[in-house]
């Protein structure tokens, strides 16, 4: 009896998988993604990239949740964050994850970039992936900056004041930069609306597809790049080149030649 149920379940599962494969090609795509060979050496180093992705996904999830209560107006913003922290169930956790994963994100991105830089992973044919990565890095920095103001407390507010003042020192366009950022000539309701729009809609909308491009380029060229994954092959290459050099200079016995073939 149990055997028959099991067999039927397997059969149904197979049919379902076949149907999905036929209609979408998703199964073979999954197979291709899951069973692609990747270097065994340095596998732990390559978790930095996926950790970045994971933290950004956490940002998206908790950010969307925070929007259920957050009100982006100067007279309600602080109160709504206070509500999230003290009244909403698990509000402290949801905002805590948003806050702490943002902090981890900055650190992990730094490590990820350092890893890429020192292993020379930006070299051809992966130049564009480096460029996209730098754009993502800048987007995350601006996200961190704009998100800080949203809670409308002293810490975030004054940090933004300093940041906006820094913008005012842009050569030639300083005044325009400031007026664009604060939406007027003094910090007020318009400033919060703008930072909210930039933090919640504009930048995530740019970030998400660029992450897609980053991952696509990664799959296209493979996640290789560090020479230390190739130490054995490089050693073999060197050895062969050395032998050839020797052969070119002094010639080799017939039997030696045969052995190498």
């Amino acid at each position: 009896m149990i055997g028959r149920v099991k067999a039927q379940t397997v059969e149904t599962g197979k049919l379902l998988a076949d149907w999905i494969e036929d209609r979408t090609g998703a199964v073979s795509m999954m197979e291709k993604f899951l069973y692609e060979p990747v270097p065994k050496r340095g596998a732990w180093l390559y978790t930095l990239g996926s950790a970045t992705l994971f933290l950004i996904v956490l940002q998206f999830l908790t950010g969307i949740l925070l929007l259920f209560y957050y009100v982006p107006t100067v007279d309600h913003a602080w109160n709504s964050v206070y509500y999230i922290m003290n009244e909403a169930y698990f509000g402290q956790l949801i905002r805590g994850i948003h806050y702490w994963s943002a902090n981890f994100l900055m650190a992990v991105i730094g490590l990820h970039m350092a890893r890429t830089f020192f292993s020379g992973a930006y070299k051809a044919p992966r130049e564009l992936n480096w460029v996209v990565g730098v754009v993502l890095f800048l987007l995350v920095i601006v996200l961190a900056f704009t998100g800080y103001l949203l809670r409308w407390d002293q810490d975030g507010f004054w940090a933004s004041v300093v940041g906006i003042k820094i913008g005012s020192y842009s050569p030639f366009i300083g005044g325009y930069v400031v007026n664009f950022l604060i939406g007027g000539d003094v910090i007020g309701p318009a400033t919060l609306s703008r930072f909210f729009a930039i933090h919640v809609w504009l930048l995530p909308a740019i970030l998400a597809p660029l992450i897609g491009v980053h991952l696509y380029l990664l799959r296209r060229h493979g996640e290789f790049g560090s020479e230390f994954e190739y130490t054995e092959r490089l050693a073999k290459l060197k050895e062969r080149q050395r032998l050839e050099e020797y052969e070119r200079r002094y010639g080799l016995g017939e039997e030696e030649e045969e052995r190498r073939e």
Partner: peptide, 25 residues
Amino acid sequence: VAAALLIACTVLSYVFPAPLAEPAD
């Protein structure tokens, strides 16, 4: 790694809650 990060975030949110200073002035 992801699980470790998630655990760290969860623990930190309660040990060191995300700060909220006085309202902006």
